[in-house]
Amino acid sequence: MIPAAFEYYRPQDMAGVLAILEEHGDDARVMAGGHSLIPMMKLRMAEVPHLIDLQDVGGMSGIEVGTDSIRIGAMVTQSDIIDDASLAAAAPILREAALQIADPQVRYMGTVGGNVANGDPGNDMPGLMQCLDARFTLVGADGERDVPARDFYEAAYMTAREDEEVLTAVTIPLPKGGYAYEKQKRKIGDYATAAAAVQITKEGDVCASAAIAMTNLSDTPVYSEAAGAALVGTALDDAALTAAAAAMLNDIDPTEDNRGPIAFKKHVAGVILRRAILRAWSRA
């Protein structure tokens, strides 16, 4: 498993990155942790004649917890997320999800930016970011722009990011209420059979708001507005849970693979979502 030959660059700043992207267009690609990209290159499923390593570009590895939002640099790794105490206090769902990604070695390398920019429906961060209503900051030759996570994913490996843009940060409104990231997988190191990200707020005994997103159940992550809406105003009784699950099932479109046939995936999606909602509720 040897990748095809390529030219390697390690620019020291964003201008350097953008210049190379500009010059080589489609033939150039940025690399963060490389733990999605390198396996694809080794299997010769991705051909990257010009590989731009982002590791020396500053300003992308900070985690800033503000009063109403959190900013996570694109180069923050999954293990950084797990280790950051202020982040764990402000948005514990991130830690809960990060711990369910791959294994310790991969988490040391895999970055938030790479995970959300990759566009692989199996990645866990995209659904999570949709649940949290994150915004992705993209930088290109024409400057900076923000795209909501909920609008970012178009199809497998197709996102709103232009080839010449770099994702620099993820900004999340400070999450409120209870949370859960529930994932079923075959073993450590596997992507989700089904996963659900849930963030819920409570007023009295009633659900005030609910955000729900699902992973690996369509060719993109699925933010199910209808599923969240089915919970709002209820006391999360069985009828509400059933309605939410039904709404979610309307929004997903899983395909058959080694993890199982469609009927199974839909069933598990429903079960996982119920569990996630109940766990989030218990923490709200």
Binding site: M1, Y8, R10, M31, G34, H35, I38, P39, K42, L43, D53, Q55, S79, D103, P104, Q105, V106, Y108, M109, G189
Partner: peptide, 25 residues
């Protein structure tokens, strides 16, 4: 394919699967 860990080394304090990193990196 970065699943087995037989190639694990420590790089600047991190456990890394060296089959999934270029020497250049």
């Amino acid at each position: 394919t970065s699943h087995c860990g037989a190639c694990t080394v420590t790089i600047d304090g991190k456990s890394v699967k060296s089959c999934t990193m270029f020497a250049a990196q």
